[in-house]
């Protein structure tokens, strides 16, 4: 790890002022569960680290009758604890499942909601120093000819082959959450899915945030009691899911009024799936099965990760089943 300047501002305005416009010059620090390992491995080398943990409003969680507002530095434990206290999990089960799926007590204690959403990919080529696009000296990707068992099956036509690792993002996307962003240019609100992009060239990041922009909160504005997240996670304890699916449903007389679906760990971004085809139809096992197959139709697996196509279909089916059952 390189030496760096450390700042601990008390307000968002101050924090934003301490961030550089230049990508990589500065880094916001919350729980540090990802940033510190990135710095230790010299994958990022910020000159200044700006801790957000002194900004009290960022650690607040507000649960209303039909609104949930989660500050960016709310820890995963605090999020789950608030769920026990005021039962927000019953209103947004998909988010509850996703948060509860992060099985490490240490990560839950230190990791924050904002940090979870903006953590860097776990691609082993990236983490071993081959760059986010895992290119060799000639600019060709090592991934298709390498070991890509965990890599993308969607959105991988460009140079990015990694998968986005966030557990919470697919759930928030399915639930229609918004993210609040603050920069010196002011406050803006975007849909959670709009936080992400697949980089197209070396040096590009996988998020749409400007270098001097902070994620301050995510907001859910509508209750979605029929929702669920299903993760295909090999180990019972801490492990990365191979794929995950989040669904949120509104039913009307047994028929689908609205449905939102998002997949995790299948693409360089969390991967929203168009569920319009379900609207107006009854949601039985056959319909869910057909939807799951259709949802994976456009998948472009690499030589050794076609199994993830199958797993994603299973995750969709099981997420729907869980949402309908209300578990």
């Amino acid at each position: 790890m390189n030496a760096f300047e450390y700042a601990r501002p008390a307000t968002v305005a101050e924090a934003v002022g301490l961030l550089s416009k230049q990508e990589g010059e500065t880094a916001p620090l919350a729980g540090g569960t990802d940033l510190l390992s990135l710095m230790k491995d010299f994958l990022v080398e910020p000159k200044r680290v700006v801790s957000l943990m002194g900004i009290e409003p960022l650690a607040e969680i507000a649960v209303g009758a039909s609104e949930l507002r989660i500050g960016a530095t709310v820890t995963l434990d605090a999020l789950l604890q608030a769920g026990f206290l005021n039962q927000w999990g019953a209103k947004w089960p998909a988010l509850w499942h996703a948060a509860a799926g992060i099985k490490s007590p240490q990560l839950r204690a230190m990791g924050t909601v904002g940090g979870e959403l903006l953590q860097r990919p776990r691609c082993w080529y990236f983490r071993r120093g081959h760059g986010l696009l895992a290119q060799d000296a000639k600019g060709e990707s090592l991934v298709p000819r390498g070991d890509h068992r965990y890599h993308a099956i969607f959105g991988n036509a460009g140079p990015a082959k990694f998968v986005h690792p966030s557990s919470l993002a697919p759930a928030l996307i399915a639930l229609g959450a918004e993210a609040e962003l603050v920069s010196p240019r002011g406050v803006r609100t975007v849909k959670v899915e709009e936080l992400y992009r697949a980089p197209q060239a070396a040096g590009e990041r996988e998020t749409t945030l400007a270098a001097d922009e902070l994620l301050t909160a995510v907001v859910l504005k509508k209750v979605a009691p029929k929702s669920a997240t299903y993760e295909v996670r090999p180990r019972q304890g801490l492990d990365w899911p191979l794929v995950a699916a989040s669904v949120a449903l509104e039913l009307d007389g047994g028929k689908v009024k609205a449905a939102r679906v998002a997949l995790g760990h299948v693409a360089p971004t969390p991967w929203p799936v168009d569920a319009a085809a379900l609207v107006g139809k009854p949601l039985d096992e056959a319909a869910i099965g057909a939807f799951a197959v259709a949802a994976l139709q456009g998948a472009t697996p690499l030589a050794k990760n076609a199994y993830k196509v199958e797993l994603a279909q299973v995750a969709i089916r099981r997420a729907f089943a869980a949402a309908l059952k209300g578990i």
């Binding site: 082993w124 071993r128 090592l142 390498g146 070991d147």
Partner: peptide, 11 residues
């Protein structure tokens, strides 16, 4: 797990 191109250890 090894990378066949570089011979590097991936995990």
């Amino acid at each position: 797990v090894m990378d066949p191109t570089t011979g590097a250890l991936l995990n």
